[in-house]
């Protein structure tokens, strides 16, 4: 799976208390899909504040289950003159009406669709909600592009790219993403911090802890590109790890 494919299947962790940035992300995705000429399919009800240029097709979660052969939806859209499919899906509603396991299968089917067809997917997970309760699922299925209000984590074969700010409100996202990385990666890993603008002490600690676990497993781990304030947090945390009180 290459980076382009995985970034076509995006995950969005939507904070219920958020300032509206995650809503903007939904609107932006929607407009881009419309501009690409894709048929917009929605699963669940997500408020769209942007101007709807195309009619949305409401789908049932079962339509996207592998057993329903969702590729047929793409063929139909192409036959109707669309350039492909844009799928907007609310994970909380899917899991509420089906199950975690069912949603897991749907996510897998969507990744396959993005790999083989002109399909873009945005999966919205609420926090609090399945974005906290089933964070593993959100992380696992959106390794190419997982967004939270303050943070974006993008993972490829040998790079974890951390952009934005990490604090107590989204530390679990970084932690879960790095844990998934530790399980899945090989011997070389770069954690790219060039777009990280803030790391709390807890975030710096989580980074060092996962890097240490990976190194103990024989991997070569590089923390790369940290700007001075981020580097300072990492350095102080490293000092504290070297000389525990």
């Amino acid at each position: 799976m290459d980076a382009t494919t995985t970034t076509r299947h995006k995950g969005l962790l939507r904070s219920r208390t958020a300032s509206g940035d995650t809503q903007t992300a939904i609107d932006t995705w929607y407009r881009a899909a419309v501009e690409r000429g894709q048929r917009i399919c929605t699963v669940g009800t997500l408020p769209l504040t942007g101007t709807a240029a195309a009619r949305e097709t409401a789908l049932d979660p079962a339509d996207l289950h592998p057993s329903a052969e969702p590729a047929r939806l793409v063929q139909r859209a192409l036959g109707d003159g669309y350039q492909g499919l844009g799928v907007l899906i609310h994970a909380d509603e899917v899991i509420a009406t089906t199950s975690e396991r069912f949603h897991d299968a749907v996510e897998t089917a969507l990744t396959d669709l993005c790999t083989d067809h002109p399909v873009e997917v945005l999966c919205v997970y609420d926090r609090p909600g399945v974005g906290t309760d089933c964070l593993d699922l959100a992380v696992e299925h959106h390794e190419g592009d997982l967004r939270e209000e303050q943070l974006t984590v993008r993972r490829t074969t040998d790079v974890v790219h951390v952009a934005g700010e990490v604090d107590m409100t989204n530390l679990d996202v970084l932690d879960t993403a790095l844990r998934a990385t530790a399980l899945a990666r090989g011997r070389r890993l770069r954690i790219d911090l060039s777009e990280a603008t803030f790391l709390s002490a807890g975030a710096a600690h989580v980074l060092h802890r996962h890097a240490a676990v990976l190194r103990q497993a024989g991997a070569h781990v590089e923390l790369h590109g940290a700007a001075p304030p981020v580097a300072r947090a990492l350095q102080l945390v490293e000092l504290s790890l070297r000389s525990p009180g």
Binding site: S240, R242, S243, G245
Partner: peptide
Amino acid sequence: LPAASRGS
């Protein structure tokens, strides 16, 4: 005191 073992 260096606090790695004392929690965040």
